[in-house]
Amino acid sequence: MAQIVDTIAQAIKRADKTFFNENYTKQAQAVVDGLRKAGFEIVPVKPPEVLVEYAVENIPFGRLRPSELIRALYGTMVENCRKFVS
């Protein structure tokens, strides 16, 4: 959690050098960009049905250990979330 807070703080600091720091949209975009650059993604708590369907169609087939299946499913959903969530 400390890494996320630090990433957000640094992104806001870099986003707007004006005296009053009034461009909140620019700051918010900088936060999102900073989080993505640090390896994070912002995703909804409940995935949309279209993303679930996509993941079902794109997870690897065959025998996987449960941990491998979970990693593959998680990766597929997080990496493709921006395609299905606006």
Rank of each mutant, 00 (worst) to 15 (best):
Q27C: 14
N23Q: 14
F61P: 01
C81K: 01
C81N: 14
S67Y: 08
Q27D: 09
K13V: 05
P66S: 11
R14I: 12
T76Y: 15
K46V: 10
Y54K: 06
D33S: 13
C81Y: 14
L73E: 02
G62Q: 04
P44C: 10
G62S: 14
N23H: 10
N21L: 13
C81G: 08
P66H: 01
D16R: 03
E49R: 04
F20L: 11
E79H: 03
E49T: 08
Y54M: 07
V56E: 15
L35Q: 02
V32L: 04
A28P: 03
D6H: 06
A72Y: 02
K46E: 06
E53L: 07
E41S: 11
A72S: 12
Y74F: 15
P60Y: 12
F19V: 05
P66D: 14
E53G: 04
S86I: 08
K46Y: 12
D33H: 03
K13P: 04
A28D: 00
Y24G: 10
E22Q: 07
P44Q: 01
L69E: 12
P60R: 07
G62E: 11
P60L: 07
P60H: 07
V78I: 13
V78M: 06
V45F: 11
K83T: 14
L64Q: 06
F84W: 09
Y24H: 07
P66V: 09
Q3R: 06
V5T: 07
V45H: 07
T25F: 12
N80F: 13
I70A: 15
P48N: 02
R65C: 06
A72E: 09
L51N: 04
Q29P: 00
E41P: 14
P48W: 06
R82T: 11
N21K: 13
V85D: 03
K13Y: 13
Q27T: 03
D33G: 04
R36S: 09
F20M: 11
A55C: 12
G62D: 13
I12S: 08
A72C: 14
M1S: 03
K17G: 15
N21R: 12
I59G: 10
F40C: 09
S67C: 12
P47S: 12
M1G: 03
P48E: 06
A28L: 03
V85A: 04
V78C: 10
A9N: 02
E57W: 08
V5R: 01
Q10V: 05
V85Y: 13
Y24T: 07
D33T: 05
P47E: 08
V52L: 09
I59S: 08
K26Y: 05
V85L: 12
V78Y: 08
R36D: 02
L73G: 04
A38K: 00
K13T: 09
V31P: 02
